[in-house]
Amino acid sequence: MQESAKLSELDLAIVNALQISPRGEWSRIGAALGITGATAARHWERLTREGLAWIATMPGPRFADDGTTAHVFLSAEPKYHVALAERLCEEPVAATVARVTGGHDFRLDCFTRRQESLDQIISERLSGLPGVTRTETAYVTRVHRQSSSWRSGVLDQQQSRSVAVASPATHGRRAAFDSVDSALLDALGGDGRLSWAELGACCGVSPQTARRRVEQHLASGHLALRCEFAASAARPVREASLILNVPASRLEDVGRYVAGLPNCRVSVQVLSVHNLVATFWVHDLNEIHAYETEIEARAPGTVAISRSVTVRTYKRVGHLLDREGRSVGRVPLPMWRPE
C-alpha cells in the first residue's frame, strides 16, 4: 500500500493492530511493528485528535439474542435528504446512518434493549419526519459477521499473531446492565483506550471493578470494541450491499460463506421481505457482481431484492462523520442504559 496524504504506512499498520486488539498494550503493538510503544502511542494520539481513527463501542454478535438489532430503510423526497440526514443523526437509537442507492434512500443500523422501544421510535419519531414516504424494518436474527471482525490486512500473519491477545479469563459473563455498567460503557464510547484507572476514576469505581465488568461484557458477546478510521484517508474503498432472499434450506450456509469472504464487513440473517444482508468494502464495484454470481451458484434460487452503494455515511456506531469520514462528534448509544 502506498502512503496516503493523511494516513502513513505506519498509521495504517497501527490501525490494523488495533482492529485485532483494540486495547492492546502499546509496548506489544510497537514490538510487532518494529517501533517503540511510545512512538505507536504518539501516532495514535494524532489520529484520534484529528478524527482520523477511533475506538468505538458497539453491541456484540450476541446482543441480538436478548436485545433488538434491526436495519431500518427509509425512502424520502430528495429535497428533504440533507435535513433528514441531520435529524436522523440526532436519534440515539440510529447507531449508523447512511444515504444509499437502490430501493431506499437511507439505511439505519438500530439497537434497542426491547423490540417495543424500536417499534415505537419508528412509528412515532422516524416515520413522521418531514419528507419520509416509506419505512421498512428488517430484524436481525443471526449475526455471521459484524464489522468489528473486519480487518484491513496491512499486517502480515506474523505481525497479526504478535499483536493478538488471548481473551482474558472471566468469572461470570454479564448480560444485564446497571448504572455502573452504563457509565463505564458510555465512557469507553468516548475513548475506547482509556486505562482501567482512568475509566474507573471517570465512573467512581476501582480500576479492578472497571476491568472486571468490561471484560465480562466483552466475553458475553453483548459488547464489542471496534477500531474505525476515515476511509478517505487510506486507499479509496466503496461500500456496497446485497439485500438477498436466499432459499431457507441454504440460508445458514450462505450466511457463513459470505462472512468468510475477504471484503465482507457484515453478514446477517434478517426477518423481512428479504432474509440476508451482506455488506462489502471493495475497490471496484464490479467485485459485487462477482460475489452475487458466486452466491447464486452456491444457492440456486437466490434472488437479489436490492443492490445498494453507500453514497455517504453520516454516522457510524454513534460517531458523527464529516464529508471526509472523520469523527467530529458523538451521540452516545442508548442500549447500555438500565431500564
Results as ranks from 00 to 15, higher is better:
42 R>L: 02
153 G>W: 01
113 R>A: 14
269 Q>K: 05
214 V>T: 12
252 E>G: 11
201 A>L: 03
79 K>G: 08
227 C>D: 00
201 A>Q: 06
40 A>P: 01
331 V>Y: 00
56 A>I: 01
40 A>I: 03
177 F>L: 11
290 A>R: 15
186 D>R: 12
24 G>Q: 08
322 D>A: 05
167 S>P: 14
331 V>R: 00
181 D>C: 12
121 I>P: 04
174 R>M: 11
152 S>P: 04
210 A>K: 01
312 R>T: 06
59 P>R: 02
110 C>I: 08
266 V>F: 10
240 A>N: 06
58 M>P: 00
284 D>V: 06
259 A>Y: 13
304 A>I: 11
122 I>D: 00
244 L>G: 05
202 C>D: 10
269 Q>E: 14
301 G>W: 09
240 A>L: 06
301 G>K: 07
5 A>D: 14
223 L>N: 06
156 D>H: 11
118 L>C: 03
322 D>Y: 05
58 M>A: 13
332 P>Q: 10
301 G>Q: 09
146 Q>G: 07
27 S>W: 08
54 W>D: 12
337 R>P: 01
46 R>Q: 10
162 S>Q: 13
198 E>G: 02
145 R>N: 11
213 R>Q: 04
148 S>Y: 14
239 E>M: 14
44 W>S: 01
26 W>V: 03
295 I>Y: 05
122 I>R: 01
292 E>R: 15
320 L>H: 10
327 S>F: 07
58 M>C: 10
150 W>F: 15
318 G>R: 00
207 P>D: 00
95 A>N: 07
164 A>C: 12
48 T>M: 06
